[in-house]
Write a protein that binds this DNA or RNA. Structure first.
Lengths: 302, 302
DNA sequence: ATATTCGCATAAATTTAATCTATAGTTAAT
DNA sequence: ATTAACTATAGATTAAATTTATGCGAATAT
């Protein structure tokens, strides 16, 4: 089998496409590189480079081989990274971005468990609204983003985590389950702009930005909104997992296509060195909230 | 940096937990194994095994290291696999399971492109309804499953692909957009049991298995249902991407929480040797259907 | 207590592999 | 033809992996 060193040589030569330049980057002489490339090709049984062209080019086989070699190098880097962390007793840092309406219950619920699962990891958690979160993610400032789906971006890996019913807080209403009609003559209380819950709330209530609401207060957190509803009536939407005062009575909203729900997803770089820790976190979230509820109705929740 | 050979030694020793037995499996003598393990540990700067216990055990560092080594071995196997394929001019086989309501349009749309993207791959495509698909997937009989989400299973990797609006075929109805009320006094035509579209259709129509429908025919494919609707009236639900006769007029269904839609996902084993080809297929699907449509309402679509 | 056995480590010799210096072969441009 | 730019090959050198033989320590048996 071919050695890691040879793999590195192949990778560097595939970038430089010239033996001399590549050999310098490998810190060996040109004949060494030639020999090792040749040996690698002999071991594998197929040429990796086509030397008949100028400059050098990859064979079809070489093109298929490269992504695998890169993957091995990423894993190899993870080993180095692991050693350094151990050495300097450096804590691995994982930066997590979470939208507020998830963070408000998930952090209290799971932070303790996360610290137990990953005692050597420094968790840096930041509340970000969806748009900011995606932006921060793109700038590689985050290792993991937790938000409401759907989200289609082939550049990041998306892990569906669980679905969460959206309940209504409307103390005025008498019954157990509300219909959509029951909301029409009530006053909605909205989260401030940028919260994805707000967007969906507005779709629900058939509002738009122009529609002036009687009370034009837009709360930054759910507790506040719930408080306002308690005092002044109306209603607000609350994710099922939220921690609220125990004597707050939430009601299900029955729509013809099921109970409204959102899907919570995790996004992270496919090549992240911190993959292992990230997957531990995601699994812990799935286990905590992942009980499938029947009859939910996933909304487009941006 | 530590060699692949050393990694293999570490892995085998971690399984056997005894130098002599492990060295036999490595086809080297015991001192060789001892030396190489020691050298690996020196290179990395930390012990991998705790020799003070009987039998041998892994250190905390070793426990973190192992998954990385396994990943490298998987990639290493992929190299061998690639070489053999090249040798025997063996075509790589990818077994794909697709639910019928997706297959009916996706295969005609994309099969040609897939063959172009992966000329050396033998695609084996099978129509399976969701339940059968998941079962076949679990038995490792499939490399890739394409179905409607949501699906939460930490054992497989889930890739969200696109969301697809569900339209109504109801030629009796006059307007452009239908409301839920408009469906109430019309006759629904259902797919046969096991199709996930059927389940959601029934939720929509507020039917249950007991509710006898006037016409108790349950079609196995959408074309047939559409045909029946044309002849006998009533309505049926149709995924937006379906290929139907051009003069079939489909209508949107407006519900308070948005237009009904389903999310199409791909599931596959995280460690599949065919990962590269599978990712090519998934990307091609995302590109073809992945235009985000606003205001969709993702349904729980099992 | 003292052999005996089991399991791992160490030492020295041997084999194998990687690298270097020096040089020769190829191709394309002048 | 000559040169310049690259790549391949040869032979010597150095480094690394492996083997055989042996030593050390702890548990077990006599």
């Amino acid at each position: 089998m071919i050695s890691i060193q040879q793999m590195q040589y192949v990778l560097i030569l595939s970038e430089e496409l010239q033996f001399l330049r590549a050999s310098e980057r490998c810190f060996v002489t040109q004949p060494t590189l030639s020999m090792q490339i040749k040996k690698a090709e002999e071991t594998l049984g197929h040429p990796i480079f086509d030397r008949s062209t100028t400059p050098l080019s990859l064979t079809a086989f070489g093109k298929e081989l490269l992504p695998i070699l890169r993957e091995i190098m990423v894993e190899n880097d993870r080993i180095k990274w692991l050693c350094e962390r151990q050495n300097n007793s450096f804590k691995e840092e994982i930066k997590i971005g979470i939208i507020p309406t998830i963070a408000s219950y998930m952090i209290p619920d799971l932070f303790g468990e996360w610290k137990e699962l990953l005692p050597n990891v420094q968790l840096i958690i930041e509340e970000l609204r969806t748009e900011e979160l995606l932006l921060t993610m793109e700038n590689k400032q985050l290792d993991l983003g937790l938000l409401a789906g759907p989200h289609y971006d082939p550049r990041v890996r998306t892990a569906p985590l669980f679905q969460e019913e959206i309940l209504i807080y409307a103390p005025d209403f008498e019954g157990e389950t509300m219909e959509l009609l029951d909301l029409e003559n009530r006053q909605p209380w909205l989260l401030s702009k940028g919260n994805c819950l707000r967007t969906q709330m507005m779709a629900f209530c058939k509002l738009n930005d122009q529609t002036p609401t009687e009370w034009n207060y837009q709360g930054g957190n759910l507790d506040l909104l719930v408080d306002m509803v308690t005092r002044f009536g109306g209603y607000t939407l609350v994710p099922a997992n939220s921690h609220l005062n125990a004597n707050i009575q939430l009601k299900r909203l029955h729509s013809p296509s099921g109970f409204p729900a959102r899907e919570v997803i995790g996004i992270f770089g496919n090549r992240s060195l911190k993959k292992a820790s990230i997957e531990t976190l995601l699994r812990s979230i799935q286990l905590r909230y992942g009980q499938q509820v029947e009859g939910l109705n996933l909304l487009n929740w941006k």
